[in-house]
Simulated assay, not measured.
Amino acid sequence: MSAIKKFQVTFDCAEPERLARFWCEVLGYVAPSPPPEEQDSWFACSDPSGVGPRLYFQRVPEGKTAKNRVHLDVRVGTGLVGDERLATLEAECARLVALGATHVQTLYADGENESCIPMLDIEGNEFCID
């Protein structure tokens, strides 16, 4: 049996283009435009290096009603510990808040786990920066 080589992450949302453009800013992705007749129903973005997964945003009629069962971890502090890690996370948090994200809380290192910051994107989807 062969291993899966590629996958995409799909978001149900109210405003596909707006949410896609937010995530492009977060991740440094690019967003080619869908055909004009489909711009209101979906939008996608991809890693320009071709390494990361494609993100696909599809319009759905219902709003978000519960906590995500899956969320993205945006890995900005990999390899960092202590105050250096926390400063890096806090700087990224400030950048993302300026883009419209919501800072939920800061979880500080506790001897077992390193610091991370849970956040919400512009449509209320949970994600973490760690």
Rank of each mutant, 00 (worst) to 15 (best):
D110E: 14
L99P: 11
D83F: 03
A87L: 12
Q105A: 08
E84D: 13
E90K: 07
A87H: 08
A91H: 11
V81R: 10
E90D: 05
Y108I: 11
Y108S: 10
T106H: 01
E84G: 09
E112D: 15
G82A: 11
L96I: 04
A98N: 07
A94F: 03
L107Y: 06
L80I: 05
G111I: 13
T102H: 06
Q105S: 10
L80M: 12
T88N: 07
E90P: 02
L86P: 07
V81H: 13
L96R: 03
L89P: 11
L96D: 03
L99S: 11
R85W: 03
T88C: 11
A87K: 14
T102F: 01
A109N: 09
V97D: 01
E112A: 12
L80W: 03
L96G: 05
E112I: 14
T88E: 14
V81D: 12
D83N: 13
R85S: 11
E92L: 01
R85T: 08
T106R: 07
G111H: 09
E90L: 08
H103L: 12
V97S: 00
L107I: 14
R85A: 07
V104K: 02
V97P: 00
G82T: 07
A94R: 10
H103A: 04
E84A: 15
L86K: 15
